[in-house]
């Protein structure tokens, strides 16, 4: 072996080791978070947690039924608001990529993506809470939706752009109008990816606390009204975690565990959806 070749092999070995180390460093916090959440949360989780309401201070037991329902309602509102807006916006960007308007929208989406979630919360507070002087599920859902929009816009745009140009030409050559080609061929071809993007965005906002603090606020009682304050898992976990009661701490861990599981479930769902749709696309 020449000296040169030996040197190259040594360099290669060093860099491979560094890469492997970086992976371990990145995984340690993740593993620790999961370990603690499971260790503390799993034991505190029981059927009551899902089915019962919070008990008054001093009484033990109770659950977070209202917060679980609340979180589902909030992300439902967020999706109902952000998915159509985000997808249509992404379609526009991919169809008219070169226009001045598109580059402004793209830039705006990137900025919005970087805006701290608490700022989005203040905005929703300003336009949806202050005028009616009441916290509401709508305000919380819209705040979460605003956080979702940029993610949905950019994933939609990028995935549509990956669709081969030949498909568009094929549709147009058969006499399809431009809109028809987009909605009957191009969007369906990118659908698995777009769906994943939406689920990932949902998973992300499901874990948001800050924008809900002064929009959806919180609610110790069962409420599904969209115009009333509503409980959410994240805010409930926050409230319980900073309380002085051991029983509430246990519940906070259980809530945290449930949140992690929900997000995990969304991610798995995203993968299954992709696999299913891709199978339909392929064979």
């Amino acid at each position: 072996m020449t000296a040169n070749l030996r040197r190259r092999k040594i360099y290669s070995g060093i860099f491979e080791t560094l890469c492997a180390l970086a992976v371990v460093v990145a995984l340690i916090p993740l593993a620790m978070i999961l370990f603690y959440v499971i260790k503390e949360g799993f034991g505190a989780l029981n059927l009551d947690f899902f089915l019962h309401m919070p008990k008054p201070v001093g009484e033990s037991g109770g659950g977070m039924a209202n917060a679980i329902a609340g979180t589902l309602i909030l992300i439902g509102i967020a999706a109902a608001f952000a998915v159509p807006v985000g997808c249509l916006c992404g379609i526009h960007l991919s169809e008219y990529p070169g226009t001045k308007f598109s580059s402004i929208v793209r830039f705006a989406a990137d900025v919005l993506n970087g805006v701290p979630s608490i700022v989005v919360g203040i905005f929703a507070y300003g336009i949806l809470v202050l005028p009616v002087k009441r916290f509401s599920a709508i305000a919380g859902g819209v705040a979460l939706g605003l956080l979702m929009i940029p993610i949905v816009v950019r994933t939609t745009e990028e995935l549509l752009r990956l669709v081969p140009g030949g498909l568009r030409e094929g549709a147009l050559a058969l006499g399809a109008t431009r809109g028809r080609a987009v909605f009957s061929v191009i969007v369906p071809a990118a659908l698995p990816g777009i769906l994943t993007g939406i689920l990932v965005a949902l998973a992300r906002v499901a874990g948001e606390t800050a924008p809900l603090l002064f929009t959806a606020f919180n609610n110790r009682f069962w409420s599904t009204s969209l115009t009333q304050p509503i409980a959410s898992l994240t805010v409930q976990v926050f409230t319980y975690a900073i309380s002085p009661y051991d029983d509430w701490h246990r519940q906070a861990w259980a809530g945290a565990f449930l949140l992690v599981m929900m997000i995990l479930a969304l991610s798995i769902l995203a993968r299954l959806a992709v696999r299913r749709l891709e199978r339909m696309n392929r064979s």
């Binding site: 030949g166 050559a173 058969l174 006499g175 071809a189």
Partner: peptide, 20 residues
Amino acid sequence: VVELRRRVGMVFQKSNPFPK
């Protein structure tokens, strides 16, 4: 142009079946 393309079919260099 839509009517034109219905009367004038086209087959491309790279086959482009829709993912359907």
